[in-house]
Each structure stands twice: as C-alpha cells, then as structure tokens.
Design a protein around this nucleic acid. Structure first.
Lengths: 227, 227, 227, 227
DNA sequence: TATGAATGAGTATTCATTCAT
DNA sequence: GATGAATGAATACTCATTCAT
C-alpha cells in the first residue's frame, strides 16, 4: 500500500481528519460554513493545485488562523466537503427510497426504485458539477478512507438493504458482489454523465441508460417490457 | 473548462502536452524509455505528491535537463504514462477482439467477445495495480483530455465497431450512448476491481459480474442462458 | 532526555546535521562561504529568533534554494558555524601548544602552556564576540551533539594529553575529571570575559585570573611563586 | 547590546520584563503560581521551541487572556521563572552561609563555607535538572539582563561579602575580579555537572572538584592539607 | 476580571524550471 | 545534446497577542 503523500507533511494519512473542534455556537457554525463554502468555491474555480488555505481563508473572509482553528490541515477541508457531499447523497437516497425500516410501505418494483434513486442523484449532481468533478475525480484517493466513513457505509448498506428487499427479483447470487457492482456503477456513471464532457445525450437519456444497465444486471432484463 | 493549476506555471493546460521532440535515434528513445520507467516507478512508490522531476531524473540516471529535453513539463510525464497505458489497453483489446478490419473472421457472439475483453483488461491491470491506481485515481482529471487522445479515441471506436458488428444482438437504440455506457462502465469497474480494496470477491468473479452487467445491458439478459 | 524542538520540524535532532553536498569546486566553496558568512552576520545582528533562512540567503546574495542545496535545514547553518568556531579554537590550541605528537619539544611548564592557550583563545574570541555570544550562549543546546563532534573531541583530547604530559605536576587524581573541569572552566570563563558585559577588568587581567584559577586547581598553587 | 528578537514583536527587549501587575490578592497569587508552574512543566517537557503561551495557559487551567493579565509577553514568563530560580539559589546560599549581617557567627574557614555553598547549589539543581538545562542553556541570553536582576545582584554581593569576610585568606588582589571569577565558575560548573551528559563522575566528586578549583584559586592551594 | 475565539505576520522548506557550461 | 547548479515563487501551518463578550 502506498503512503499517499497528500498534504505537505508526508505523514501517513490517519483515517479521516476530523474538525478540530465541534462547533456548537452559531457563530462557530457560521464560520465553518463560510470556510467550507469558500473551499468549495476555490476548488471549483482553481482545482486542487490552485487551492491553498490562505486563499480559502481570504475568500471566506476569515483569517488563516481561523481555518486552522476548525480544520487541522488542508486535507481536512476537502474531506469535510466530501463528507458533506456524501451526506447529501445519503439524504437524496432516503428521499428517493424511503427509510429501510419502513419497508413494505414502498410497493414499487426494484426498477422503479432504481429509477427514482438515479434520478435523485443525477439532480443532486447537476447543482455543482464542477465541484463534484474535483471532489470525485481529482481526489478519489480520498475514497479509500471515505469508504470507511459512516455516511458512505450508510449508502452501501441502504443499497444492500434494497437488494435484500427485492431478493426475489434479483438474479445475481452474491448480494455482496451485487451491491459492490451497483454502488461502483452508479457513482461512476452518474459522475461521468454530469461532468463535462458528459454523456453524449440528454441527462434524462443518460439516466434512463443507467437504470437500464442496473436493472438489466439485477433483474435479468434491460427493458421493462420486451414484447 | 477549469484551468487546473497542475504544473507550477499557472497557465491553463492546453489540451495534451506533447513530447517536445519525437525522438528518432535509438539513444533518445532509450532515454525517453528510462525517464518514463523512472516516472512509473516513482509514482508507484511515492504517489503524486511524492513525485517530482528531479527525483525522476535521478532515478532515470539522467539529469533534469534531459527530462526537460523530451518533456515540456511535469504533466507531460504523467500524460505520456497515461498514453502508454491507453496504448497497452488498446493492444490488449486488439488481441482480444481482433482487428476490426478482420470482421467476420471472429464468429463468437457479443457476450463471448466482451468476456475476452474484460478478461484481457483485468489481466493487464493486475500487472501494476498501484501504478494504475495513481494514474487513474490520483489523476483522473487527465481523463477528460485523455478522452481526446488518439489512443482513447481508438478504444472508443473499437467498442463502437464491436456494437455495430453485433447490432442485431444489441438492444439499446442509441449506439453512441451505448458505447459511452460500455466504456465508462468497463473502465471504472475494472479499476475498482483491481485497485485496493477492490471487489469483495475473486478477480474471476468480478470479471464475470462485469460481463454480466455489460451483456445484460446490451443483450437484454444478464445470464447467457435463463431457462 | 528532552527532545529539544529546535527547528520547525519537531523531529528529534539526529546527531550532527551535515552539509547536503560536500563542495569540491571552488564556486561551490565560495557559495558555502558566502552563506556561512551571511549567517554569521545575521546571527550577530539579529540573534537567533531574528535569523531566518530567507534573510540569510538574501544577505549572502544567493537564493534560498541554494542555501538548501548545501544545508539540509536551518540548524545545519548554525551547526556549521559552530563547527567552524570549534575548528578555529582547535587551530589556535595547536598553535599555542604544538601538536601532541611533538611532545618533549615544548619544555615549558604546565602553567606557561595554559597561559598561552588562554591567551590564544581570548584573542580568537575578541574577533567577533557577539557572534560567539549567540553561538555559545543562545545555542549551547547545540553543545550536546557538538560535544560528539570530532573537533570538540579533539580539543578535549588535546587537553587530556596536556595533563598527561605534565602528570607529575598535576595534583588532581582523576585525569578524566580534571579534563572536564579544565574544558568547562576555560570555555565558560573565556566567553564570560569576552561577551558583554564581560569581566570587570581588562582582558589581560581576566586572562591572568583564568590562568590562576586553572593552575591553582591543577598545580595546587595559584601564583607562580608565593614567597 | 543586541536587540534579541525573542518575542514576536521585534522591538528591542527593554531590560527585564516585569509582571504587569504585582498580585496582592491570594487568588491572583495562586493564578501566577499556577501559570509559572505550568510554564516550568511545559518547558521541561518540550523545551524552548515547544513552549507557547496557549499551551502554558491550557496546562495552567487558565485562559491565555489571564496569562497576559499577569505577564506582558512570553519572555516575561521565562524571566519570572529565571528570577524564581535565582531566588531559590539565593535562599539556598543564605542557608548555607548564614546572613551576612550575622557575620562572625560562622567561624568556619572559607573552604568549608564554599563546600557548603557548592553542596547546597548542587542539591538544588538536582531537583529539576531538565528545567535548569532549558533555563540556563537554552536561554542564557537572559543571563545578561538577569545579571542586573536584584536577586542575581544579591548573590553576587553575598559572594563578595564572603570574600571580604575572609580577606585575610584570599590571595587574589582584586576583590571585584575574584567575585566575578567565583560566580561565573560556580554557575557554569554546577550546571555542567548536573545537566546531562554531566560530569564524568559522581555528583559528590564533581562538587569536591569544584570546591578544589575555587579554593585553589582563592586560597592558593587546592587541597586542604598538602604535606 | 476572565475568557478564548480570532487574528495575521512570519518562516522553513519544496520543486518546477532555466541556462551557463 | 547533456548537465546539474541555481533560482525563487509558492504554501502549509504556528503562535504571540488582542479584544469583544
């Protein structure tokens, strides 16, 4: 395993960097918010190499010191942004699928649910595609630790639960493997679809194709109804 | 397009950096080879942040000046490595599918050909997974320009040709879109399967799953034979 | 043992920092000379906290990069200066005492030799007392490693040899201990004498007093001749 | 005098920084005590570079603001600690020699008194050698101003008084010079003896050697009785 | 008074790139 | 062509100090 020298200090990245202090007061929260907002903006405009803590601080209208008051290092900014993104995706998923505990309430078939999910995620990514590009394509090496982040785990588990709910419709035998295929495929294709140059078609068509792909794999037939 | 400030000079990266001179003499070629080899080694051992031109030169047993004789800047090294990788993939594809001009010679069905291709690519990636990890996961922002690289275009076209050859078996209507789905899916899943932590199963099983996914999408059924 | 966080990096100081490359060509040597000269000047003018590598480089008329080409870090500059000082003291000692191998050639008694040595060292320190102040008083924590430097060892050994040569005149039993007392006393008193506010008397008188002190300890009587 | 740029503000240090307010209430005194205690602890554990006001405040269980309520700047903390040390040495000296006003009461000869003093100081330094190491070796540039501190003056004067009491036994003519030699020698050798790597012998033997050195200088013979 | 969040100047070090030899 | 010494802009991070609450 390569020790990815990601920040200046060549120390091996110790799992997920956490905010230095959990902000409780509203002022602190606003500060953290402003810092993350500025990070997102700078990241979007200048990419990874062009992003530096001093600039982020300036853009956020705070001092560098304040940035370091809440984030132990530069990577923590990116990680926080990543986490926030994962949380948004998780929320979008919950909205699209409902909570797993409320199973049975949702009587749609697997394909319909997949369509909802893909739709919701595509919509969420269209908000700030450039930011996601940087976050997901320039720093996927944050994915390894991020995969162990609770939010990412949550996403994976929800997908797994979805497959379990519909296990009678699901063709692939190994649910673990099927979950992996699902998550990898959805993430990469949704990003590829949204991020320039994007898919060679409308977002709707791309979404449709992704659903076809997934449903074809899971249910053994790509099209809902083949005459 | 975002001007990714990747090299020291903040100038927006103008498409693909090309080798400063195409070396014709064998000595030059050996030099370029040594430099790229060293780049690959350093990249594998130390990741992106740990890679720098001086170290590459040292490892290659050349002076920095010589590196800059053949590569206009640091990014050109990585781009060249990426191109080389794409070329290898292209060659593996040719071996697996045969040249498109020799169509008709290969009488296997689409699924069999897909299986060969996935097999070949998985095998090719297992040779130096760490290098691919860095190349594909730390620098996927090269992907966009790389998509415009001739080699990548070649891969895309070969896949497109494959779908055309089997257009009778292919369910999706839009061949352009189908090609896009194919390429994106294969690339991301193969990388995900090979790069740690990898797929939650054997490489064979992962390959099988990828083929199932692709064939399900293209042919309308995931399993070769469903009774 | 306390890990003295001396440079910015909190890493434990690994014995003596060595120049990054041993300069062979005259230009390099001149560069190193200029850098050390500048370091000495800055150190003298601004003390430890006021000394920084960028300023040193500027004063030396070179770029920071060049400083780091020859010295791995800031401390190495100070260490080099310290070493150079020790070497000067060693040379002054050789001149005052003669080489130990040529024993017998010098027929003076112990007290005379001590007087020569003290004299020589006082003179050497009067050249740049402020520099020595900083070197010896602001950074004596460099002494611990420096004590293991070959030059400092050389000084200690020469003193030890001197005591051995005159073992018949020397009262204290333990030569190891006597050497320690000698070295510590000479160093601290000479520095104290030269560095402002210095001794409450002329340099000559101070030197005389130091010789009295040492000779009194070693030979059992402070004055050369007490009637 | 060199303007040692020791605190962040580059202003030349104006002699001795004094506590901002002399605390009269017990709570204040306790606060000051806690702060100094914490300073000593941090200094001992982390050395000069590792010591910072925020950490000191935290260790003291106070806010930084409170530190600055009683100490105008960081150096004042160290100066106060140094003063406290000097005071302890002064007290130890009083205990060993008796108050100078009570002269005549102590009928011991000079050498005995010196032995007592050296003994007492060695013992005092063995309590927290690391702290003294930092205090005396990392910051001896405080020595110059410290020499002007009342407590240090007190020590000097007491030594001077001692020499006067025994002026009949004292060989060196200039009492001012003799005092200077005494103070410098005792301080540096006691520190050298206690601070690692220390003297190449037991503390007792080192103390004995120091007394021999001083007595030899003052009284003209190193050993109490030479047959 | 006490607090501690906020400040921001300051600094060691790196590394892509150049160019005189 | 090849070399590698020299360059110097760039940047993460610290910490003494302030001041609104």
């Amino acid at each position: 395993m390569i020790p990815v020298a990601n920040s200046r200090s060549d120390s091996p990245m110790p799992s997920l960097p956490q905010p230095r202090r959990i902000p409780r007061q509203s002022r602190s929260r606003a500060l953290v918010e402003a810092i993350l907002e500025a990070t997102a903006r700078v990241l979007t405009e200048r990419g990874y190499a062009g992003t530096n803590t001093n600039l982020v601080a300036e853009r956020a209208g705070v001092s560098v010191g304040s940035v370091y008051q809440y984030f132990p290092n530069k990577d923590a900014l990116l990680t926080a942004l990543h986490e926030r993104h994962a949380a948004e995706m998780h929320a979008a998923m919950e909205r699209a699928l409902g909570s797993p505990s409320a199973a049975g309430a949702d009587t749609r078939d697997l394909r319909s649910k997949l369509a909802s999910l893909v739709q919701a995620w595509l919509a969420a990514h269209r908000v700030a595609p450039e930011l996601h590009r940087v976050l997901e394509k320039e720093f996927p090496f944050f994915d390894a630790p991020a995969d162990q982040s609770p939010t990412d785990q949550g996403i994976r588990q929800r997908i797994r639960a979805l497959l379990d709910e519909h296990r009678s419709e699901v063709v692939p035998q190994d649910p673990e493997l099927a979950t992996w295929v699902m998550v990898q495929t959805m993430e990469s294709l949704i990003h590829a679809a949204v991020i320039p140059p994007g898919a060679p078609c409308s977002a709707e068509a791309a979404g449709q194709a992704i659903v076809d792909l997934l449903a074809g794999y899971l249910c053994g037939q790509a099209r809902r109804a083949l005459p």
